[in-house]
């Protein structure tokens, strides 16, 4: 919320739901040319960032475009692997898993909210929310029950059979939030969740996210001050590094 909290509340090793330690994500574009041209320089999208987030905490990753917010979010959610450093999610190092294992890890432990909602247009709101439960192999009755319950929790109990095309942007994002909670994950990552919404609608969506997050860890990447203002703590990034440089001796800020 405020600057004081932002630098003082990184959780300890034992209480963190997700922890990134000395994270580096380097992208290399192409190789050296046939005629001795130099290879293009590698880009360090994330450069030595350590971060830890505990349950019940909403952390905002702030920074301008190109500062590495989304890349850090991908690493924490197990969507990508760091070039160096480790991400510990649900007690395990994400690098220990192959793609299938990380998909399962995300399914069970991470809820994802996208900037552009990414609901399947052919399916109803309820079917969209129930998607992760399909992968879990839940029976249909259980899927319907859980999805309806979540849609009611985000204030869309009267829209369960509506397709995304018949919902407003704010409603679609609330459906996406409900979907992110379907498997009761420990961590919710949201990449610019208000990026496609007007400020009033964005406020409602963030309020819904805060209401349903309960004791889950929420990481929100945004350059929207309104979105960052609702976070318990913010981690500013600049050029792939933490701009607050608040790491303590063990490098985690804990």
């Amino acid at each position: 919320m405020d600057g004081e909290r932002a630098v003082s509340t990184e959780p300890s090793e034992s209480t963190a739901v997700v922890r990134g330690r000395d994270l580096v994500r380097r992208y290399e574009w192409g190789a050296a040319g046939l005629f001795g041209d130099d290879a293009p320089p590698a880009v360090r999208a994330v450069d030595g960032v350590s971060i830890a987030i505990r349950g019940g905490e909403m952390v905002g990753i702030a920074g301008p475009s190109g500062s590495g917010k989304s890349t850090l979010l991908h690493l924490l959610a197990g969507l990508d692997l760091p070039t160096a450093g480790t991400v510990t999610l649900a007690g395990t190092d994400t690098a220990d898993y192959g793609e299938r294992g990380r998909a399962r890890l995300r399914l069970e432990h991470v809820g994802v909210v996208f900037q552009r909602f990414h609901l399947l247009p052919a399916l109803s709101a309820r079917a969209n929310v129930a998607l992760p439960l399909v992968e879990l192999g839940e029976p249909k009755s259980r899927r319907r029950e859980r999805a309806t319950e979540l849609l009611e929790a985000v204030g869309l109990g009267d829209r369960v059979t509506h397709r995304p095309g018949r919902l407003s942007g704010g409603e679609q994002q609330r459906v996406a939030i409900a979907r992110s909670l379907a498997t009761e994950p420990d961590l919710i990552v949201a990449d610019e969740p208000t990026g496609e919404l007007d400020s009033e609608t964005g406020e409602r969506v963030l309020s819904a996210l805060g209401d349903v997050a309960d004791d889950r860890a929420v990481v929100l990447a945004s350059h929207d001050e309104q979105a960052l203002a609702v976070c318990d703590r913010r981690v500013p990034l600049r050029d792939g590094k933490r701009a607050d440089d608040e790491r303590d001796a063990d490098g985690t800020g804990g």
């Binding site: 959610a77 969507l79 793609e99 299938r100 998909a103 399962r104 995300r106 399914l107 069970e108 991470v110 809820g111 994802v112 996208f114 552009r116 990414h118 399947l120 998607l131 992760p132 399909v134 992968e135 979907r179 992110s180 498997t183």
Partner: peptide
Amino acid sequence: SESLGALAAIGLSRRS
């Protein structure tokens, strides 16, 4: 590809 990528992100395996 966006929908399929979204499904991958929320945890649907490549096989699914």
